[in-house]
Design a protein around this nucleic acid. Sequence first.
DNA 1: CTCCACTAGTCAAAGCTTTGACTAATCCCT
DNA 2: AGGGATTAGTCAAAGCTTTGACTAGTGGAG
Lengths: 180, 180
Amino acid sequence: MSGEPGDDREQLDYLSFVDYAVARTARELPDIDALAMRFVLTLHRATSALVYDLESSVHRPRGLTWPGFRLLFVLWLAGPAEAKRVAELTGMSRAAVSALVKTLEREGLVCRRQVAHDRRSVQLALTEVGRVAIADAFAAHNAREQDWVGVLSESEVVTLIGLLGKLMAGSARIAARRRS
Amino acid sequence: MSGEPGDDREQLDYLSFVDYAVARTARELPDIDALAMRFVLTLHRATSALVYDLESSVHRPRGLTWPGFRLLFVLWLAGPAEAKRVAELTGMSRAAVSALVKTLEREGLVCRRQVAHDRRSVQLALTEVGRVAIADAFAAHNAREQDWVGVLSESEVVTLIGLLGKLMAGSARIAARRRS
DNA sequence: CTCCACTAGTCAAAGCTTTGACTAATCCCT
DNA sequence: AGGGATTAGTCAAAGCTTTGACTAGTGGAG
């Protein structure tokens, strides 16, 4: 596995790299599980492409980042919540939420309050500006999601969701590491 | 959509948030495409969980980051290549590759050379240390990938790969934004 | 040959993430 | 009530990413 020339390496791009990588690995490292490799490469590339498109076409033009959108979205749906809970629901670490909220608070989208029953915790909530921003962003976000999903049939999407759910459910069985 | 209490918000966590969000949105914003919403939420969460597990259980313990692993992987398979090409194959921007290579070069995993025919471009290649590092990391990476994929049947994985491929292929049709 | 457009790469500022340390408040056991 | 263990949140250092600007080098049109 040295990358010497003389192979079929012409006109390789982001899409075809997966095929190239799997073919080459299968040839030179037969002990590797090629299907698992292809799956993870494909999943990662598809998700990256989707997230990049949503962030750059929907959120950045509105002054939001992808993590900012996700945090506002959780507050919008779940209501005012303590930082710890927001971290759990968004899948971010507590430190990441803390840093992100600092930005969102400065922009006037979120506010922090002391909680009565436990002076350690901080309650996070949308401001009125934040509520309007997330409602607008989510509408555009969902429209763009529809464009993406539109290339699949409804039953294909249902199948995909089901299999991804099974994958997630299985992560507990293999003791996958999760954010603290 | 205000997050007032009195709903079914108890014992909500990272996994069940998708169900909660979709149910609530379907109830209060009937114009939203709930299936597209569920799909994107599920895809993003599944991928994040997988990447977090691979990075924290396989790569960080070896002193690699996830982007570092990806860049080494491309150089390993595609052979020495100009920075622009590495950016295309990894899906990173040229600026991101430039910054990442600075770290990898400092750690002695990658080296930079001038190219003869065009004095603007820089050729990137693995060092011997880099070659050993990526070979070791990829073996462990693939073993972990197998654990994840092991919860699905082979035909389920093939289905998943096919549908994700169709999704990616469709992104051209909707003029999805891609990294420059 | 000259000039202008384009290309490769780097840099800088700002943002998000991670780990690990640290503070402050709460809990619980004796 | 006292004291140790937990827990919530923040901070700091280091790394990666983005956008946009900037430097060099290349190449084609006149």
